[in-house]
Write a protein that binds this DNA or RNA. Structure first.
Lengths: 187, 187
DNA sequence: CTAGCTTGTCAACACCTGTTGGCCTACACT
DNA sequence: AGTGTAGGCCAACAGGTGTTGACAAGCTAG
């Protein structure tokens, strides 16, 4: 059943890699097919051949799996810190770091990406919160948690506000963790 | 000393108004001079005549005065709620609502706008926090406060996550206010 | 009334974008 | 060895961008 690996798979992966980097650095609109192709040392028309269009390439580049921890089996007293720590890992380690940065950078400019972020929220974040506490107000609690965590990502990785960048991972967990904990537990 | 009002001042203001709306709706890159001119019922070249360039127009459009409350004279016990409430007003009332949306939408795509946001942070937010509590760690506390408040703006006004949009102003103040309070007071 | 400056329009420029089709090269199979 | 096909490159397209300059109308000062 498994397709035999073709010669082109390498270039395909190279393109996707360059695309992720460019999208992360420049956002969807500023990142051009030509610049991505140049980074991958390939002709722009190859990008079209393999991914159909710029939109197709973008869709392939931002397919992300958050792998959030199971909050149901976690220690209820430190679940806020756990989630915050995992969030930092996602944003600072390949391959999700570039993907998430891309999503956030592009969400502001394109409505289609906003929709994609809502999907990630509804499909991956809310279900995780749903396994903790009262299911009735889970969406509301998930929304508050995300407002804090995405704000952290925005100020730390996009705007790079110096005092927020200066915080160590442990400090972030210590400061922001309790906030997430309070939102999760239902204030 | 005051310049006599010219006939062109009206068009000038019309252009700036249309620009703010377009920038807020589409972000810097997607908002074109032609579309702004069309909204203002004016020729594109007029925009250039009055504002020099698209960058000049943008700079004029995002000149913002936050008018944050004086935290030194406020009740130290409710200063978090006070700041959160004022933040909501800024984001939901003209003329700052469109300006702030523009800044946030464009900051993600353009490094120059990121710099502008850092300036607003350093020039208007940090000084306000500086008037409350220990000056030594004021930048750090200001950074944490902004991480929560900008995250709120991001999820509520840009991504429009349904559960966050559904919150009333009073609910936002009740949920987020204590977080801001804790950050301000130094956890 | 006339001269001059302001306000505005029109057309064009040079550039960059995503996208397409034709062509060459080199491998793989018979 | 010969041939078909996949991988890759080049040149061009149509459309949209910010920006510019020349030119027409209209108000205002002398």
């Amino acid at each position: 059943m498994t397709e035999s690996p073709r010669r082109s798979d390498a270039t395909r992966a190279t393109i996707l890699d360059a695309a992720r980097r460019r999208f992360a650095a420049d956002g969807f609109r500023r990142a051009t097919i030509r610049s991505i192709a140049a980074d991958a040392d390939i002709d722009p028309s190859m990008v079209m051949r393999y991914y159909g269009s710029k939109d197709g390439l973008f869709a392939a580049a931002v397919d992300v799996e958050l792998d959030l921890p199971d909050l149901a089996t976690a220690d209820p007293g430190t679940v806020g810190e756990l989630l915050t720590r995992q969030f930092l890992v996602l944003w600072e380690q390949p391959p999700t770091d570039e993907i998430l940065l891309t999503l956030l950078r592009s969400a502001v400019a394109d409505d289609a990406v906003v929709e994609k972020m809502r999907q990630v929220f509804a499909g991956q974040v809310t279900p995780a919160v749903l396994r903790f506490g009262d299911p009735a107000d889970a969406p509301r609690r998930a929304g508050l948690v995300v407002s804090q965590l995405l704000g952290l990502a925005l100020t730390r990785y996009v705007l790079r506000l110096p005092p927020v960048v200066a915080l160590t991972s442990a400090e972030v967990v210590a400061e922001v963790g309790p906030t997430v904990q309070r939102y999760l537990s239902g204030s």
